[in-house]
């Protein structure tokens, strides 16, 4: 470490440690954002356990399971893409990132069909049939759409983030020596997986 004073250079200052720390700080706020929603769920479930139980049978467990497998697998591919980049295998890294994006799109397609079925059955807040449901079931579907919706938004943002990393690798701004952007995109994507790990059993599985 030399102590000579450096004038700000052409704007290409690079500090991987700070960038990672910043990413993590952001992820902590994300955890608390979803955490707050989980607390809302916890209270309403406690107050309406029978209604939540009945409503949970209206979800498709197999679609949920398929999406869980997709997210876990994409979490692995993005983690492997960072390993590949660190080892200098750019091509493999980019391919693994494309696989992750394909999994993200697959997740959204399944969600589209799942939500579509709910629209058909009138289970969406604001629809006529929804208004006739008992209070507990209305709360369940309200939370279902809000929480999986917010999670879905994160899936979209995560996929776009990974696209930027692919662009960076192709342009040469993300390299085996400067992989911090790919690492941060990976962290964000794992958060998406992390939230789903709790959403899936809470909405689909606990009968």
């Amino acid at each position: 470490m030399d102590h000579t004073f450096h004038l700000p250079n052409s704007g290409h200052n690079f500090d991987a440690k700070s960038s990672k720390l910043g990413m993590w700080l952001f992820l902590y706020t994300e955890l608390l954002l979803f955490g707050g929603l989980f607390l809302v769920y916890m209270v309403y479930r406690e107050l309406n356990s029978e209604a939540f139980l009945l409503a949970s049978f209206k979800l498709n467990v197999w679609m949920g399971t398929f999406n869980t497998v997709l997210l876990i697998t994409s979490s692995m591919t993005i983690a492997m893409s960072i390993t590949a980049l660190q080892k200098g295998n750019k091509k493999l890294s980019v391919n693994l990132m494309w696989l992750t994006i394909i999994a993200a799109l697959g997740f959204l397609v399944v969600k589209y069909f799942e939500w579509g079925a709910k629209f058909e059955h009138g289970l969406v807040p604001g629809m006529e049939h929804y208004d006739t449901l008992p209070m507990g079931e209305r709360l369940y579907f309200y939370l279902y759409f809000f929480m999986t919706g917010l999670h879905g938004l994160h899936v979209i943002i995560g996929a776009i983030f990974i696209l930027f990393v692919i662009r960076g690798v192709n342009k040469g701004t993300v390299t085996p020596e400067r992989y911090s952007l790919s690492e941060n995109a990976g962290l964000y994507w794992h958060l998406v997986d992390l939230v789903w790990i709790y959403l899936f059993p809470l909405f689909y599985l606990i009968h």
Partner: peptide, 19 residues
Amino acid sequence: TAMIIATVKATAVGYYFMH
């Protein structure tokens, strides 16, 4: 039970995938 299993999974994601 579901929350305990989910937490084991989340820990694995944090520990290994998130490094």
